[in-house]
Design a protein around this nucleic acid. Structure first.
Length: 492
RNA sequence: GGCCUGUUCGUCUAAUGGUUAGGACUUUACCUUCUCAAGGUAGAAAUACGGGUUCGAUUCCCGUACGGGCUACCA
């Protein structure tokens, strides 16, 4: 039997980083077993539908490199379509199927019509809370005879369908991550399975869909563990096999509460906008709650597919630690090839108004190499490289190296400019400049810092920057000498 | 409140019935160095608590504390 996993988000907003991790784990499990990874959309709550949410989810997954084998997919042109023979894969297009199976449950006596109003349910809940009683539906309509219920339905009375939970016994399941979990049936609610508007609830649709889509492994967030016995009961009523279950620990805020928007960015989109690379994001998120055991930390998608083990997923929640993400991202940026660096960075420079898209790529690659190993996100590039395009304002005093003095700088800089002027434009590159200046410093018995510091500051306009020869070669001879002249003027 | 669940450095985590409890991020010092970054070396930093079981428990069991999730006609 082929292994099939699914990620089944609701289009109620942008893809959450926790959702990304769930999708990733599902994907890894499928891929390492030559199985299929499906994407199903759970859009049964019409009130919470968010325009653009579905597009964002698909785009974010695509960005992350998680490819869907079946279900709802987005093609190269951003067009959303369905793929596979077990569709439709949008729950709102499966209403007929849910209706059919709800009816079956009703006929078998495993479900009943409930006419309780929202108001009565709310009053009941308030009463239970106030008296510190266990909350839940009190079963008022469970005792209604089918005939009476049918009569009220035909009169047009608003109603829902509830499943009948057994009053005795236990529901036991073996979670791949947590082991055996036991619930007493009497404490479990008669869950609504079909709402007044005719749409199924999550709990009903998920069982029907996972069954017909032949899902073998249900991997989802921890928040679903409490409702799992309801799902299992439905499988029993239908006589279907229960898939393997795995409940993932939650992603947490720094204060260890469930990760939320209030305390930072939770959407994958936010991290895309901040200049994180998909490889870094995937690597980081994979290690939140899972660890291969060795000391290797940099894992590509292919390596994750190879080494991932569902049994090694942790039980406890993991804090989403930005500092570690930054470190991963920095590592991945450093490992980028020159071409890839240009491809990924150019949009940021263009957006900041520093260059146009038709800028010389070989040159911009040199510019980028100045900061490639110094930034942790691509978003930092425009600010870090600004000095290349526009010399920052600065005062003459910062041209003086801490172990040097004003008069020495005044002597050195003009002479250095003369020396540099002897280097031809053709020879103007990092290595030759380093050689020439190095030789010159030695011959004149200067200290490195007395020369290199003011040179570097005059070229960058900053106390902290990349090295002088790298900058000079990027700026070219004319611009470099112009900046040095400007520096000399500041000293007068 | 009820149900479910979890707890190893600040964070992500490794490991085992016997280890100097390992790594990474963060952090500190030093080295390198014209500055920053990177790199190198060294350091600080953890088994929640109390009982058992055991020759021995961080590991197994029980309890306590604390945390988290769920408790909707939301997913």
């Amino acid at each position: 039997m082929i292994l099939r996993t699914r990620y089944a988000p609701s289009p109620t907003g942008m893809l959450h980083v926790g959702g990304l991790r769930t999708a990733l784990y599902c994907y890894l499990i499928a891929k390492q077993n030559n199985g299929k990874f499906l994407l199903r959309i759970e859009d049964t709550d019409r009130k919470r539908f968010v325009e653009g949410g579905l597009e964002n989810i698909l785009r974010s997954l695509k960005w992350a490199g998680i490819e869907t084998d079946e279900g709802v997919v987005m093609d190269e042109n951003g067009v959303i379509r369905e793929k596979g023979d077990k569709g439709p894969y949008m729950q709102s297009n499966r209403l007929e199927l849910y209706g059919k199976y709800a009816k079956e449950l009703l006929e078998k006596g495993h479900a009943y019509h409930c006419f309780c109003t929202a108001q009565r349910l709310e009053d009941l809940r308030n009463y239970q809370n106030a008296n510190k009683l266990a909350s839940g539906y009190d079963g008022l309509c469970r005792g209604l005879s089918p005939a009476e219920a049918q009569e009220r339905v035909s009169k047009g009375e608003a109603h829902v369908l509830r499943m009948k939970m057994p009053k005795e016994g236990e529901t036991v399941f073996n979670d791949l991550i947590r082991g055996e979990v036991v619930f007493k049936n009497e404490l479990i609610d008669d869950q609504v399975i079909i709402k007044t508007d005719g749409f199924p609830t999550y709990h009903f649709a998920v069982v029907i869909d996972d069954h017909f889509m032949e899902i073998t492994h249900v991997v989802r967030g921890d928040e679903w563990i409490s409702s799992t016995p309801k799902h299992i009961q439905l499988y029993k009523y239908f006589g279907w096999d229960v898939p393997q279950l795995a409940h993932l620990p939650l992603l947490l805020n720094t204060d260890k509460t469930k990760m939320s928007k209030r305390q930072g960015d939770v959407a994958v989109e936010d991290y895309i906008q901040k200049g994180y690379l998909p490889e870094a994001m995937i690597n980081f998120v994979a290690f939140l709650g899972w660890n291969p055991g060795g000391e290797k930390e940099m894992y590509s998608m292919d390596e994750l597919i190879k080494d991932f083990q569902i049994e090694k997923i942790n039980k406890s929640g993991a804090v989403f630690n930005l500092e570690k993400l930054d470190w991963f991202n920095q590592q991945y940026i450093r490992n980028l090839s020159g071409d890839k660096m240009v491809e990924l960075s150019l949009p940021w420079l263009v957006k900041a108004g520093l260059v146009k898209y038709n800028v010389d790529r070989a040159w911009i690659s040199m510019v980028l190499s100045l900061e490639k190993e110094r930034v942790s996100t691509l978003a930092q590039l425009p600010e870090a490289l600004g000095f290349v395009f526009v010399l920052p304002e600065y005062t003459g005093d910062i041209l003086i190296w801490k172990k040097s003095n004003e008069s020495e700088v005044k002597e050195i800089l003009p002479r250095l400019a003369e020396e540099l002027n002897t280097v031809s434009v053709q020879q103007w590159n990092k290595d030759i400049l380093q050689l020439v200046v190095g030789e010159w410093v030695k011959n004149n018995n200067f200290q490195n810092g007395s020369v290199l510091w003011p040179l570097r500051v005059s070229l960058s306009g900053q106390q902290n920057s990349p090295g002088p020869f790298e900058i000079a070669s990027v700026l070219g001879k004319d611009e470099s000498l112009r900046r040095i002249k400007l520096a000399i003027e500041k000293l007068l």
